[in-house]
Write a protein that binds this DNA or RNA. Structure first.
Length: 593
RNA sequence: GGUCCGGUAGCUCAGUUGAAUAGAGCAACUGCCUUCUAAGCAGUAGGUCAUUGGUUUGAAUCCAAUCCGGAUCACCA
C-alpha cells in the first residue's frame, strides 16, 4: 500500500476525533512536499479553515500533533507554513519498504482479476509498408495491453488487416501492367515495400493518364474517375468480390509478400497478437445485425432502399449503415466485427487504439451498439491518439514525406552503432551481442520518443531529436540501468547481512527511495488513464534521481558495511523498477552498454 | 457553419480532479573523468502559462467571450 493511501485514512480518523466531522478520503489533498520545505508529504488545510472557523496555523498544529500521537512510529515531525501541514515520515517507513521490496524482480505485478479485455491495436492496409503513425499506434496499444496484463486483467491482443478493397487492387493492377513478373526475391526487396512501390507507381501512372484525358478535353473531375488504370482497378475489385480465381490468386500472392514484410517488422518492434482478423473475412459481417436492428426499429429504410440510423437525439446526424444496393460500408463491418469478437472472447471491455481522426466514427459505433442493446456496448472504448507530424507538418504520401518504419529503425540502429563504437565500452561483445544491443537501443529510443507524450495529444516527430540519446530519452534510462547492473555484478545485497531497517537515510538516498515508493501509484495512474507516458516520465525521473545519488555517494566504497548494503539494496530496487516500467513500454534494458 | 481537441521557455513536452517561488529535456553558456560506465553530474541564462473578463482565501488549471491552429461532419476506409 502506498504511503498516501495510508496517510488519508489516518487524517480522516484524526479529523473525526478532533472535530467530530466525517470526511471522505477524496476530500483530502495530500501532495508530496516541495523540496524547499521541510517534510515529506503535505496536507493542504485551506478547505477546513472556513468549516472549523480556525486559523490554518492552529488547525495544522492540532492535526499534526494528533497524527504524531496516533502513529508515533510513522511520523517523525511536522511543521505548518501558511495553510500547509508538512508531515515528516520517519526513515523506518522507507527502510521497511526497501527491505521488503528490493529483490522483487516482478515489482508492480498484481494478482489476477476476472476481467477480459480485448485490445485491437494495429490495423494496417496491405498495400504499403508501416510508417511512423502505425508505430505510435502499435507502441501505444502494446503498452496499454501490457499495463492491463500486469494489473491482473486477461488481455487478448488483436490486429485487423485491411486486406481488400480498391487500394489493394491498385497495387495489383499496377504490378500486372508494369511488374514483368518481378517478385520481392527477384529484386531483393522486402515484401511490403515491394508491393508499396507498385501502389506509389499507380499514383504516378494515374496522374499521367489524367493529364492525357484532360488534354483530350475531359474535365479533371471526370478524368480522375476514367483513366484506364483506374477502370482496371475498379474492374478488378468487382472480379475479386465475385471470386474470380485469377484475381484471388494474384491477391493472395501479393498479400503474402506483404505479410512476410509485416511479420519481420512486427517482430523487430515486439508487436505480438493473440488473434488476427482479416477484412476480407469480416467485410460481409454486420448485415445480419442490421437486419435485426431493422426488425427492432433501431434502423429505418429510406425510399431508395438504403438503411439508416437516426442519431440526432444524441447530437449527431443520420448515419448510413447499408447502401441502397444492400452492400455494407465501413461501420457495418465494424458492427459485425465487434459482435464476432464478443462471441469469441466474451470481453468485458473492448479497446480500439485508433487515431483521433476517427473519433466521430467510433462514437457512432458505440452508440449504435448501445441502441441495439448489445451486452458489450458499454465496454467499447476508443483509445484515441493524436497524429504524428513532422516539423514541416503532416506526413503526406504524395509528397513523399512519410517516415517509413523500417527506415527509421535502421537509421537509429546506425546511430547506436556509431555511438557505441565511439565510446568503446563493450569491445568484448561478439557480433551477435552487438547487433542485439544496437537494436535494443534503437527500438528503445524510438518507443520512448513516441510514448513519452500524452497519447491524446498530437505530437511532432523531429528526426534530429529522435537520434539524440541524451536527456529525456530511452537510451538515457537504459544507460542508467546498465550502470546499476555494473555495480550489482561486483556485489549483490547480502541476504544474511543484519537488517538495514534501523539505518539513517541521507538526503539523496531518501529522495530516491521516496520516488521508488511511488511506483505503484504511477502504475495505477497509467492504468486509469490508459496512458503509458506517465510511466515513461517516471522511469526518466527515477533514472535521473539515481544518477544524482550515484554521483554523490559511492556504493562499493560506502562509509560502512551497513551503508554499502543499504545502497546495494537501493540500487537493486532502482534497477528492478526501471526494468519493470520500461518493459511495460516495450523497451528492453541492457546489462551493459 | 455544427461538434470535438489543442495554444505553457527559441524548440519538444510535463503540470490541467484549483494550492507554496510554473518544471524537465534539447539548443546556448560555465565547471567536473588517475575514484562503482562522462550515453553522466553540478551550475548560469531563458516565461504577459494565446487574449480579455469572471468565480475563489488561492487560477496555467474552473466559467464566459475572443483570437490562432488542427480534426471531423461521404452510399471512402
Amino acid at each position: 500500500m502506498s504511503i498516501v493511501s495510508r496517510l488519508k485514512p489516518l487524517v480522516v480518523k484524526v479529523l473525526k476525533e478532533l472535530y467530530s466531522q466525517d470526511f471522505r478520503e477524496d476530500d483530502l489533498t495530500i501532495n508530496i512536499t516541495k523540496p524547499e520545505f521541510e517534510g515529506d508529504y503535505t496536507l493542504v488545510l485551506f478547505s477546513f479553515v472556513k468549516q472549523f472557523k480556525k486559523s490554518p496555523e492552529q488547525l495544522g498544529k492540532e492535526i499534526g500533533e494528533a497524527l504524531l500521537k496516533t502513529e508515533p512510529a510513522l511520523f517523525s515531525s511536522f511543521n505548518v507554513i501558511k495553510g500547509f501541514l508538512n508531515l515528516g515520515i520517519g526513515d523506518a517507513y522507507w527502510l521497511y519498504f526497501l527491505q521488503t521490496n528490493y529483490a522483487d524482480k516482478r515489482i508492480g505485478l498484481r494478482p489476477a482479476n476476472d476481467k477480459t479485455i480485448i485490445v485491437e491495436y494495429s490495423s494496417p492496409n496491405t498495400n504499403k509498408p508501416l510508417h511512423l503513425g502505425h508505430l505510435r499506434n502499435n507502441f501505444l496499444g502494446w503498452s496499454v495491453a501490457e499495463i492491463l496484463k500486469t494489473t491482473g486483467h486477461k488481455v487478448i491482443k488483436t490486429c485487423i488487416y485491411n486486406d481488400r478493397g480498391i487500394h489493394i487492387c491498385k497495387s495489383m493492377v499496377t504490378w500486372l501492367q508494369f511488374g514483368n513478373g518481378a517478385t520481392p526475391d527477384s529484386t531483393g526487396t522486402k515484401g511490403d515495400h515491394f508491393v508499396g512501390d507498385y501502389y506509389v507507381l499507380f499514383g504516378v501512372e494515374h496522374k499521367k493518364q489524367v493529364e492525357v484525358l484532360v488534354a483530350d478535353g475531359m474535365s479533371k473531375e471526370e478524368a480522375e474517375k476514367n483513366t484506364p488504370i483506374m477502370l482496371a482497378a475498379q474492374k478488378m475489385l468487382v472480379d475479386w468480390e465475385n471470386g474470380d480465381p485469377g484475381v484471388r490468386a494474384l491477391w493472395q500472392k501479393m498479400n503474402s509478400w506483404v505479410y512476410e514484410g509485416f511479420n519481420e517488422t512486427y517482430k523487430k518492434i515486439g508487436s505480438d497478437f493473440d488473434k488476427n482478423y482479416f477484412e476480407s473475412e469480416t467485410y460481409l459481417m454486420g448485415k445480419e445485425i442490421v437486419e435485426d436492428g431493422l426488425a427492432k426499429n433501431v434502423f429505418f429504410k429510406k425510399d431508395d432502399g438504403s438503411t439508416w440510423i437516426d442519431l440526432t437525439a444524441d447530437g449527431l446526424d443520420e448515419k448510413l449503415v447499408l447502401r441502397k444496393d444492400g452492400t455494407s460500408i465501413y461501420i457495418t463491418q465494424d458492427l459485425g466485427l465487434a459482435d464476432k469478437k464478443y462471441e469469441q472472447f466474451h470481453y468485458d471491455q473492448s479497446f480500439y487504439i485508433i487515431a483521433d481522426e476517427q473519433n466521430y466514427h467510433m462514437k457512432v459505433l458505440k452508440l449504435i451498439l448501445q441502441r441495439l442493446k448489445k451486452p458489450y456496448a458499454e465496454g467499447i472504448y476508443h483509445l484515441s491518439y493524436g497524429l504524428v507530424e513532422l516539423p514541416t507538418g503532416r506526413m503526406k504520401t504524395r509528397e513523399g514525406t512519410v517516415v517509413d518504419a523500417d527506415d527509421i529503425i535502421e537509421e537509429l540502429k546506425n546511430v547506436a552503432k556509431l555511438k557505441t563504437e565511439e565510446l568503446g565500452k563493450v569491445k568484448d561483445f561478439n557480433p551477435g551481442e552487438l547487433n542485439e544491443l544496437y537494436e535494443t537501443i534503437a527500438i528503445g529510443a524510438l518507443k520512448f520518443f513516441l510514448l513519452r507524450v500524452d497519447p491524446k495529444k498530437r505530437m511532432v516527430f523531429n528526426p534530429e531529436e529522435s537520434i539524440d540519446f541524451h536527456g529525456f530519452t530511452g537510451p538515457f534510462v537504459q544507460y542508467t540501468h546498465a550502470r546499476i547492473k555494473s555495480i550489482l555484478r561486483k556485489e549483490k545485497p547480502s541476504a544474511t547481512h543484519p537488517s538495514t531497517v534501523h539505518s539513517q537515510l541521507l538526503p539523496k538516498e531518501k529522495e530516491l527511495l521516496v520516488l521508488l515508493e511511488q511506483y505503484g501509484t504511477v502504475l495505477d495512474q497509467s492504468l486509469e488513464e490508459h496512458n503509458p507516458s506517465v510511466l515513461a516520465i517516471y522511469a526518466f525521473n527515477t533514472a535521473k534521481t539515481f544518477n544524482t545519488f550515484y554521483t554523490e555517494h559511492s556504493v562499493m566504497n560506502a562509509e560502512s558495511e551497513e551503508k554499502k548494503q543499504l545502497r546495494l539494496q537501493l540500487s537493486e530496487l532502482t534497477s528492478n523498477i526501471i526494468a519493470s516500467s520500461m518493459n511495460l513500454l516495450g523497451i528492453k534494458v541492457p546489462e551493459r552498454m
